[in-house]
Write a protein that binds this DNA or RNA. Sequence first.
DNA 1: GTCTATAAATCGATAGAC
DNA 2: GTCTATCGATTTATAGAC
Lengths: 199, 199
Amino acid sequence: MTEPAGRARRSTGQRILSDAASLFRRHGYEATTTREISEALGIKKATLYHHVSSKEDLLYRICLAALHDVEVNAKAAVEQAEARPRERIRAMIHGHTVAMLAEVDFSHTMLTDMRSLSGDRLNEVVQLRDSYQNWTESLVREAQESGDLREDVPAPHLTLALFNLLNWTMFWYRADGDLAPSQVSELLTTMFLDGASHR
Amino acid sequence: MTEPAGRARRSTGQRILSDAASLFRRHGYEATTTREISEALGIKKATLYHHVSSKEDLLYRICLAALHDVEVNAKAAVEQAEARPRERIRAMIHGHTVAMLAEVDFSHTMLTDMRSLSGDRLNEVVQLRDSYQNWTESLVREAQESGDLREDVPAPHLTLALFNLLNWTMFWYRADGDLAPSQVSELLTTMFLDGASHR
DNA sequence: GTCTATAAATCGATAGAC
DNA sequence: GTCTATCGATTTATAGAC
């Protein structure tokens, strides 16, 4: 361990992704230049190309990291949850939300700038996203079959509504706002399961 | 009337906005060039500048049109609805959703590329959006006071959840998909009011 | 791993004729 | 309203020294 006192220092590779994701979130992938990224890192533009092969490769890695983080966290939360399907849904929403909000720059970039990828990189990221959504849909279907969720709305539609609730949160969440991540998770869970009606 | 047989031909100004919005939706504002826009219109790049003062001006007008359409439609629907607050919420969701999906290119561009505006243009668009969201929040609060909506979640939070449901729909809606706009509206209304739990 | 220097292409926007 | 021609700035990316 050669890192300075106490906590591990993030590798250069990690810092490049974080700084780029921060810029991408603020100005968008297309509007951000490689010069801005390297300036934020305190290196010259040419040096950046020693670490990544292209600007698009940078976006690609950010998308992979964002999807990986959320998926791993959501699945771990579900594994640890009680067996009842309703509780597994709660755990999924909590794990997803907390992971997503812990890396807002990554998730925001993935959700809004994924379309700037092309070819194989785009295909891979889209497939990862779809497979995670399919896993979520199976969770929803399982909860319908157990009687925890309503069956008059098809599982794919319930799942679309769930991702509506989860994904748009990126656009208004503020780390310094009045809602902590677990409060956001609680809000989304309440709304997905019970809705806004008085009862 | 000098338009060709039957229906009115859209003005050049309208066609420029539609074609640009279509490209912006597909590739993003920043990634779309003025050359691509003029080619889609069948005119030369320089001619485009006879109709709009800049590329950003084009985005600005698209955002204004998108916000105007949805707001006018939602408010008209609420005016015509029954007096009961719960029915006014239903009407808002329906009017909003149908207008939004009728002009997907405009709404999608407004929601994702608004951040590329700057200065006064950005301020004006943000203010229009905020004032519409405030109007919606007052609708929610009214429904809480009448006992139609739950009061254990603050009105601003219920409103955030509502816009989560409304806004992310842009990203998966397909005009040729299995859900017609009014079915989407029905899904979102059910989810907002009643949630996914079995009862 | 970091630098200076530069290539090669493309961008938004304008000038000015018709 | 539409065109041809072009300007000036900026972009991603590479070459090659240290």
